[in-house]
C-alpha cells in the first residue's frame, strides 16, 4: 500500500487495513493523502456524523460505547473517532478512550480509532474531518466523534459534526457554568449523564430552564435535555431518537449549507497550512523578521513590512524595498 491508487481501491473494496493507513496519512500530512481522498470522495456524505463533547470524565466514551451498541442492534455499522489530548510539552499522548469500548472491539461492524489532538486546541485534531471523510467513504452508517474533555472554549466539533451531543454530569459544575462556557450554544442535544448520582435532577431542571429561557434558535430546533446512565445503558435509546429527529430536522432544511460550510472550512485550513509552510519553510522571511527586529522596530512594524512584501508579490526583494513600501501605506 504505497500509492494513492492502491490504497483507495482497497479502501473501497472494504479493506480495513487500507482504512487505517489512510487515516494515518491524513494525520501525518502525508503527501499521498490528497490524491487518495479525491479517488474516494464521491462516496463521502452518506454517513451521519454525531459529535460527543463535554467536560473531562463526564462519560463521553461510555456513552459512545452504548450508542454504538444500540446502533448495532439496528444493524447500522459504526465508525468511531476518539480524540484525546496531546501533551504540549512532549507531544506525546495517552489514548485511553477505547478502554470503555472494549465490548465493541470484537464486532466487525464497528471500527474504533483513537486520535491525538496534536497541535490543535479546539477539542478535535487537525485531521478529524479528513478521518471522518475516509470512514464515511468506507461506508459506515453512523460516525461518532468523541472530543477531548473540553473546558470553556474548545468547540471545533461544531464544524466537524452534523449533530452535537453535549454530555454533562452532576459534580462537574452547575447549569450556570455550562451556560458560561457556551456549551449550551453548541448543543443540539443535551445529555445529563450519571443520572444515578446526587445532583442529577437539579442539573436536569437547571438545564431545561436554561434551554427554555433562551431565545428560539435561528434554526428552529428545540434542544432536548435527556438523562442517561451510560454505565447501565439507561436512556440511550432516547438519545438516539433525538439524534434521528435532529437529522430529519436538518435534512428538511439546513443540511446542505452546514456541510458546505464544513468544506469551506476544510479548504481554508489547507490553504492556511500550505501558506504557513510556504512562508516560513524557507529562511527568507525568517531572516527578514530578524533584520527588522535588529533595527529595533516593534513587532507590528516588522509584521507590516513582512506583509507588504508578501502582498506586493516581491517575496524575494531585499528588506529595503519593503520598508519603503510599508512607509507608503
Amino acid at each position: 500500500m504505497k500509492d494513492a491508487e492502491t490504497i483507495s481501491a482497497r479502501l473501497l473494496s472494504g479493506d480495513r487495513l487500507a482504512l487505517s493507513r489512510m487515516i494515518s496519512w491524513a494525520e501525518d500530512g502525508d503527501d499521498r493523502f490528497p490524491a487518495s481522498l479525491s479517488r474516494i470522495y464521491s462516496k463521502v456524505g452518506r454517513g451521519w456524523r454525531t459529535g460527543i463533547t463535554g467536560p473531562p470524565g463526564a462519560g463521553k466514551s461510555t456513552l459512545v460505547n452504548e450508542l454504538a451498541r444500540v446502533f448495532r442492534q439496528g444493524e447500522r455499522t459504526v465508525g468511531i473517532l476518539a480524540v484525546d489530548p496531546s501533551s504540549p510539552f512532549t507531544g506525546g499522548a495517552l489514548l485511553g478512550d477505547r478502554i470503555r469500548m472494549e465490548e465493541r472491539t470484537k464486532d466487525p461492524g464497528v471500527y474504533i480509532r483513537s486520535m491525538a489532538s496534536r497541535e490543535s486546541h479546539g477539542g478535535i485534531a487537525r485531521a478529524t474531518v479528513d478521518a471522518c471523510d475516509v470512514m464515511d467513504a468506507f461506508g459506515f452508517d453512523e460516525l461518532l466523534i468523541e472530543t477531548v474533555g473540553v473546558g470553556q472554549a474548545e468547540y471545533d466539533v461544531v464544524t466537524a459534526a452534523d449533530t452535537v451531543l453535549v454530555v454533562l454530569c452532576p459534580g462537574a459544575g452547575d447549569g450556570i457554568q455550562a451556560m458560561k462556557a457556551g456549551l449550551l450554544e453548541v448543543a443540539d442535544v443535551l445529555v445529563v449523564n450519571k443520572k444515578d448520582r446526587d445532583g442529577a435532577d437539579r442539573l436536569l431542571v437547571d438545564l431545561e430552564e436554561a434551554v427554555h429561557t433562551r431565545e428560539v434558535r435561528t434554526d428552529q430546533w428545540e434542544v432536548p435535555v435527556l438523562p442517561t446512565n451510560a454505565v447501565a445503558g439507561e436512556g440511550v435509546e432516547a438519545v438516539i431518537d433525538a439524534v434521528h429527529r435532529h437529522r430529519a430536522h436538518l435534512e428538511a432544511g439546513l443540511l446542505e449549507s452546514v456541510r458546505r460550510r464544513r468544506r469551506v472550512d476544510q479548504v481554508k485550513r489547507v490553504v492556511g497550512e500550505r501558506l504557513e509552510d510556504e512562508l516560513w519553510g524557507g529562511r527568507r522571511l525568517g531572516d527578514r523578521v530578524e533584520e527588522g527586529l535588529d533595527r529595533a522596530s516593534t513587532p507590528y512594524d516588522v509584521a507590516e513590512e513582512v506583509l507588504a512584501s508578501i502582498l506586493g508579490g516581491n517575496l524575494g526583494a531585499p528588506a529595503g524595498d519593503s520598508r519603503s513600501e510599508a512607509a507608503r501605506r
Partner: peptide, 9 residues
C-alpha cells in the same frame, strides 16, 4: 508518552 509517543492503552 513522556518520550513523545502516542500510546493506545
Amino acid at each position: 508518552r513522556d518520550h513523545g509517543m502516542e500510546v493506545v492503552y
